[in-house]
Structure formats: C-alpha cells, structure tokens
Design a protein around this nucleic acid. Sequence first.
DNA 1: TAATGTTGCTAAATCGATTAAGTTGGCGTT
DNA 2: AACGCCAACTTAATCGATTTAGCAACATTA
Lengths: 336, 336
Amino acid sequence: MVTITDISKACGVSRATVSKALNGASDVSPETTKRVRETAAALGYLPNATARALKMGRSYNVGVLFSDTTGGGISHEYFSRILESVKAEAERLGYDITFISKDLGRLSMDYYEHAKYRSCDGVVIASADFQDPAVIRLATSEIPTVTLDYSFDSRSSILSDNVRGMEELVRFVHAKGHRKIAFIHGELTSVTQKRLASFRRTCAELGIPVPAEYVRPAVYHDPRSSGLATRALLALEERPTCILFPDDLSYLGGMSELERNGLSVPKDMSVAGYDGIPLSQVLRPRLTTYQQGAEQMGKEAARLLIEQIEKPDTWIPQQITVEGRLLEGSTVIDIG
Amino acid sequence: MVTITDISKACGVSRATVSKALNGASDVSPETTKRVRETAAALGYLPNATARALKMGRSYNVGVLFSDTTGGGISHEYFSRILESVKAEAERLGYDITFISKDLGRLSMDYYEHAKYRSCDGVVIASADFQDPAVIRLATSEIPTVTLDYSFDSRSSILSDNVRGMEELVRFVHAKGHRKIAFIHGELTSVTQKRLASFRRTCAELGIPVPAEYVRPAVYHDPRSSGLATRALLALEERPTCILFPDDLSYLGGMSELERNGLSVPKDMSVAGYDGIPLSQVLRPRLTTYQQGAEQMGKEAARLLIEQIEKPDTWIPQQITVEGRLLEGSTVIDIG
DNA sequence: TAATGTTGCTAAATCGATTAAGTTGGCGTT
DNA sequence: AACGCCAACTTAATCGATTTAGCAACATTA
C-alpha cells in the first residue's frame, strides 16, 4: 500500500508537507505541490479513508436504515428506488453508504450503537418501525438523521404527500362518476393515517358517504391480504363501484379475487393503486395509481442529511414534502 | 465518546490490559477481565471500528458492486433479493456492507480504488458489465471477490443454473405438447448464452426444430422491448404455440402485445417467464416460470467471500451452482 | 542595523485501538 | 539461597493521515 510516507520519501519532504500539498494547503509552494501530486499519481497513491476518518472524526460515510422486520425491506420497489437515489446522491456528494442493522455477528447492538461503531456521519432512516425504542434512540441522538415518511421532533424528514395523493385519487374517481368508493388500507402507520384521513375528508368535501364497511384493513405489499379484503367487499349487499388499494402490488391480489368472482377490471369494477411502480404501467389494463416521487425523496434525503453534516451550525430541521403525480391508467371506468 | 483510555483510567489499569480484557486474551486475570468488562458496560463503551480497522488491516466491511449503468440495478427484484440476502448473511458473520461505485464526489476512482479507499476486506460483484476494464481490474486484484452469474479465472463465483433452468422449462413445455416454441432472450451476456445454448440443445434432444425466426433478441427487464419481439413473433406465418420470455417482467410487455392482438393467455398462446419473482405468482393466470434461488445465491456469495477473507491460506476458488425450481403456473396449456 | 513579517517547510502530537516486547513479583525446585 | 518460570501486568511502537506549533531563511520596513 502506498502511503504519504512513501511519497514523502520519494519527494524528500516531510509527511506533513505531503498531506498539505495533496489537500491544497496554502503554505506549500506551488512547485512542491506539483511535485508531490505528480509523485502521488506516479506511485498510485490512494488516500486511506479509515486513517482519515480516525483523525478527522468524519468518515464520509452515511448509514441507511431499512428495517429488517417491517415489510419495507430493500426488495420492495418503492424502497429500493429510494435506496438507489439516496446512494446516487450521496455518492455524488462524496459519501459512501453503509447499512445499519441491529446485531452484527456476535456483537449485539442497537441501531444507534451500530452507527457509532461505524462512525457514520449521519443516517437516513428509510423504513422502520418508528415506535421501536431502538429507532427512537437513534433519531433522538446526536447523530444527524433524516427520516422518510415520518417526522421526529426537531429532525429533518422527507414526506411523500399522502394527503394530496389520496385526495387526487378520490377526486379523479369521483369525476368519473363513482360515488361508492371503497378503500383498502395498510397497517395503521402514520402514512396510513394520513391517507385515511384524506380519503375521509375528500369524500366529505365531495358529499360522498363512506359506510364503515367500505374501509377495510389489510397489509401493505401483501396481495393475499388485499385479496381477502376484496372478498369481504364483494360480499357486501351494496358493492362499491371502485376500490382503492393500499399499493400497486396489493391490487394484484385484489384482481385475482375479482376474477375468481367473474368480474373484470374495469368493466365490472374500477380500481386504483398507490405508488406508481413501473410494473403498474405495463399491466393491462394500465393501472390508475398515484406515483410517489421516490427518486426525488431519496435524493432530497441525502442532500438534507449531508447539508446538516457539513453545516451543523447553520442547520435548521426541515420537513420537505415531495409531491407525486396521478398516473391515469384505464382501470377506472367512467360511469357518469 | 468513551474509549479504552476512559476505561483504563476508571479501572486503574493500562490501555493494553483493557484491550486484552475486552478481547479475552489469556494473560489478563479473570478478576481484571470482569472488572474491565463491567466498567466498559457501565460507561457505555463501544469499540471504534475505524481505529480497529486501521491497526488490524481488517475492516470487517465488504463491498457490494452493482453496476450503475447496466440494467441490473438495485431496484430489480432479482438483484434486490440478492442484495438483501448478501446483507443478511454478511451481518450474521459480523461484516457490514458498503456499496462500491465509480467516482465518489470529486474523487474519481475505479471500483478497485474505491474498494481500497474504503479498506473493504472483499467485494461481492453482484451485477456488472464483466467486460468493463474497471470490473476486470477489481476481479483480478489482490482483493478477495466473489462474482455472481459470471466466473473469472481462479476466483469464486456463484452461478444460477441457467442451463438446467432452461432445460426444465423446455421439457415442461414439450411435455404439454408444444412443438413450436419461441424464445425471446436478453442481451448476449454469458447468462444469456447459457440459456440460449441450453434451449437449443434441449430442443435438439427432444427433436424439436428451432427456426431462426423463433429466437428473438430483446433487453432484460424491459417490457417494451419484449413487446416488440412478441409482435415480430405474431407476424410470422407459422406462429409459435408457446413463447419463453427473458424474464418475468418482460412477459408483461409480451402480454399486452398479445392482448392487443386479441390473444389471451394461455388459451391462444402459452408463455413462460424466468426468475420467479413474487409478482409472477400473484398474476392471473399464474405465470409458469423458473425461480432462481436468489436468496441462496446471495447467502452463498457472502459465505464464500468471508471464508476467503478469514482463511486465505486454505482457500481454494469455488464455483457454486445454485439450482432453482420450476414454478408451474397456468400459462402453459396442454395441447397434447 | 535591528526589528518585523512572510514564506515554506518540519517536528511532533493526535485520533483509538492492537500487540510485540519488556517488567515485576511470587512461586516452586534443587 | 539461587535460579528459573509463570502469571499478570505495562511500555511503547504502530496503523495512515491531519494539524498545531515552531523554526529557518529571506525580504521588508523604520
């Protein structure tokens, strides 16, 4: 391994001078700087991030937290897109990414300890159980954090505009003449609560009644669970004319339940999803859904986190709401 | 931050003794060991991975390489499942995961340099352009690597059994009476070549002719491209009775093209996918496909890499082939 | 000429841990 | 009593980089 010591020997200057020359300090002559840099390049010198981190107390490494237990693993479209854009933006700004988890080999630690252990400069909490004491400990610690789709007090967060998304969907469906709209929702997280409230409020604003039996619980990203909820809706005396699913994937579960009942989309039942994953747009019929701005969310999360890391004194917690857009497929039929 | 120095002061022993006590060295008395450990726990001591890595030349950190440019990004089901299982197994064995990319902020480096810069103990090359000089440099360097779905000389690799997978698919379709089988394949990577060769060989063994126009190129994970290939197949005078798609997602592109032509699956056209992503099994009709053992592949990759890292002297490069299994959906109709 | 400033460098401490080598005191052996 | 040995420590070097303080040489100014 080529170190600054090798360069200092080759150039006949001290290690301090090499370090300063490489970092462009002002108290090194232009000639020396040039000579050092050329030698470094010739020897194939690479800085050692570990040594640098130890001395500087900055690792240029940010943690990313994806709950292992909650449904929101890396392999869900929405989260993997967020991960990808967090990664891209962080790398653009000179930071690497490390996953933060509970327990590492024989060491048992919580998220906070793991982040400290790896000297992460900050952590993006992308998907987690926000009631988990370990998550709360991390998010209320001295480590800079940015959460996605949840806000901790005095912390930055990136929020998908669930209120507006749901409102747009309901208004769109309403405009197509639907008055009996059912909503299958995911677990009662804060995201779900926002969507649910927005659903109810928009319906109220539009003068649409929402019978209790039109709102059914299910599990995010679980087609089977949505299938069951769909079955329950179909068993009602007064069937809805349109079903809003908790997410695009869940729609597939509902779809197969509809088919089993001899109903076809959208002729016999209108539907809409949520998320706007690429898949939804290659399905036939193309799914009407609300596309969350996952790429932008990830990018903003990384940007906000690194801003806080690099300018701790002027930093002020921010809540950024990222809007998505309605993807008008052909699963909502006009019954006006 | 609590360091071993704090513990040594609190216990009245030297830092060396603290370090040894924490690591269970034999030349520390049981009483001292106990006292040191209790003090460490009381003070909330956490080892500093950075300092440890610097001194030991081991970071307990493995890199993961996902090509930024090639189609195989993190957000593809197959790769994200691999990533998730690499992560889980690495963490189980006490290693963290860092993404390796080209260029980091203003530093421009290739994969090898990035891995060195972060002192990765090894790298899992999960998805990459294996002709890229930067990838070749990494895979032929002194850094331990394991590649997925590609073998470098004298290197470990995990291979999905594409030969067998394709053979099983063809034999299954053949058993259902199909004799006019078309194959839409992805870009001509080594994976594709194996599938293609296996397709041809199995057809030959079964005595099925393979007209040149039944083999059509497309792009992996790109429904649009598969749609075009499907269109070309439908334009043939002698239409196939079954189409094998490059992957499950691509099937969706083909499906919509079939529908546009008034053909329904599987009544008018039998189809099969490849990968066995969860989605394929919630579609109606359920897709017949070959499920690759992504979880096992990721797990084996991490295991093999870490084995090489920890036992460099007894290490021998290994090629592990992971078999998948045929998921018999209902998209291949019996026309026997 | 002497005081002062500037430039460009070096020496040495430091980050937090590990570890080879050295030290000490107590014990057993002959 | 002299010796060696072992257990249980400590000392100090080390990993690779950064950074503060200091120093020498030369230029500038009163």
